[in-house]
Design a binder for these strands. Sequence first.
DNA 1: CAATACGTTCAATTTGAATTGAACGCTGAA
DNA 2: TTCAGCGTTCAATTCAAATTGAACGTATTG
Lengths: 154, 154
Amino acid sequence: MNRDPIDHFIEQMGFMTQEDGLPRIAGQVLGYLLVEGEPRTLAEITEALSISKASASTNCRQLADKGILTRVATRGSRADSYMAVTNPAEDMLAGMAARFRTRAGKIEEAAAGFPDSRAEARERVTVFANFFRTSADFLDEWTERAQRQMADTE
Amino acid sequence: MNRDPIDHFIEQMGFMTQEDGLPRIAGQVLGYLLVEGEPRTLAEITEALSISKASASTNCRQLADKGILTRVATRGSRADSYMAVTNPAEDMLAGMAARFRTRAGKIEEAAAGFPDSRAEARERVTVFANFFRTSADFLDEWTERAQRQMADTE
DNA sequence: CAATACGTTCAATTTGAATTGAACGCTGAA
DNA sequence: TTCAGCGTTCAATTCAAATTGAACGTATTG
């Protein structure tokens, strides 16, 4: 029985990150911090989501690495806290763009190794790779634009 | 020892789809068909990738559902074949856009259930959801643009 | 100098999804 | 009507990743 709308939201966030190949807990943490809107310590996160200290630690660090969470040093406490950045979705998209770009690189590289007897296949694969690269550019353009919009409406 | 560049490419494609939360085999199938450039039967795919008939069948169908593969009826044979669409990456992006949209919907819905005592959280979450929706729009715009470009250079 | 409070790490476990093998059903051929 | 060739389905297995518990290191407090 999970009728609390906030729990439901956090749960959904978990599923979402899971779909994206991230740990479910990562999404739950983000959801929780998004709801709270203020820094929360690892202990609080552990408690609120009923997960292990280890998971909280690992996932927070990973999210912070991706730029989705920021680490906050709270005065007067040696516990460090995390909070969600203003617009986590932007950073998620930016991460996607980055992945697209390395992906394009890998594919292109692979294609370059095709023998001349497979020239047509090489061409097809290269086109495929290019699409990813251009998509990455487009995504960057879009996130940049979104950021400007945010700045404007501030 | 995997020195054949084509095998390497197929392998990479497997990793890629795996990162995206799809079965590894799905990527391998797509890679294989991309290289071949022509329809291949389930039996051929099974053979080429050393996978089970069941996997080949399931994954091909799923990829076809996503619009990444097309089913081709070969004359004079009751075996049906699959081939990669001209630009599979486009359909992959389109799928992403679709996922973003349903995702935005779910989050918004969840946020709507927040009690008024959590109005600020609701606001934050709604902004988050909106970003996904708008991103979906932009992705669609982009794939459409890409399609036009393809059409132009034809 | 303990003793405590914290975050991290890592091996062990759990969990969930991918993959398979085998049984099945359908279709067309003989 | 039987048979062979095909794709599908589903329970069982395998596999990889997420998650945990426990041990550890470090810094802070008294």
